[in-house]
């Protein structure tokens, strides 16, 4: 062992001690992002919104291709035929009763989808979390008996909806089990919990998750995936504007 080699080992040891864990926050988040992106998908599910006026369930069918092409069609009675199309950074809404196509831009994207805790911009979010957030590893925790990493994400700019996110990431399967979303001053706004997981194409993903609005007591949105197929061939025409009014 040369002096040089010894020096390198010492250095490595020093660094691994300094960073306590073998994995970095960036690596965890990158792994989570990778687990939630598919070449294509076709799914169906439900959004259940609970607020002080009661509960409302909307069902949908969704298709996606790549990271930024997707189509959602609502199938529940009240909003049957309403569609949301995302192509690139554009978002379109289609209302069948009025046969009306609306392009959402700017501040309009911040409106809520069907009165839920989800907004249209949530659907156009960058697929790479690390592009918008700085990640630091805060520690470990046990959620429902599962060992999780606690990763704190701090928004790089003011254009991210949540200035601070804290995510609990399953250490084995790299799926988010719980998230806490807060203002820059640290006031918690929303809490997300994964209620059920499923296995798709060999990776774990949330089957049912619930977002609670911490400011509006008793108000929450549950998102449930009933079925999903991934990496299936989908025609490009499916995501065209013409297709919306069909």
């Amino acid at each position: 062992m040369s002096r040089k080699t010894l020096f390198i080992i010492t250095l490595l040891l020093f660094f691994s001690c300094a960073s306590l864990w073998a994995i970095t926050a960036e690596e965890i988040i990158a792994a989570v992002d990778a687990n939630t992106s598919f070449a294509s998908s076709h799914s169906s599910g439900a959004i259940i919104t609970v607020d002080r006026f009661g509960e409302k369930k909307s069902t949908f069918e969704a298709w996606s291709k790549g990271d930024n092409t997707s189509l959602i069609e609502f199938t529940s009675l009240a909003e049957r035929g309403q569609k949301i199309l995302r192509t690139g950074s554009s978002l379109y809404l289609y209302y069948p009763e009025a046969d009306q196509l609306i392009r959402l831009q700017g501040a309009a994207l911040r409106q809520s989808v069907l009165g839920s805790d989800l907004s249209y911009e949530d659907m156009t979010r960058e697929s790479s979390t690390l592009a918008s957030y700085d990640a630091t590893l805060e520690g470990e925790d046990v959620i429902d008996g599962i060992q999780c990493w606690i990763v704190k994400l701090v928004a790089k700019s003011r254009s991210s909806a949540y200035p601070i996110q804290t995510l609990w990431v399953d250490q084995e399967r790299f799926v988010v089990r719980k998230g806490l979303y807060a203002t820059a001053a640290g006031r918690a706004l929303k809490e997300m919990e994964v209620i059920a997981l499923m296995e798709v194409g060999g990776v774990a993903m949330a089957k049912e998750s619930r977002i609670a609005d911490l400011l509006k007591r008793g108000s929450s949105t549950t998102m449930r995936i009933e079925s999903i197929e991934i990496d299936i061939p989908l025609p490009d025409a499916l995501f065209s504007l013409e297709n919306l009014s069909w």
């Binding site: 911040r110 003011r158 254009s159 909806a161 949540y162 200035p163 203002t183 820059a184 001053a185």
Partner: peptide
Amino acid sequence: LIVSTRGKGGFFEAF
């Protein structure tokens, strides 16, 4: 009471 809003750029704010 609490005021909840979105700041310039779109971030959530509550105070």
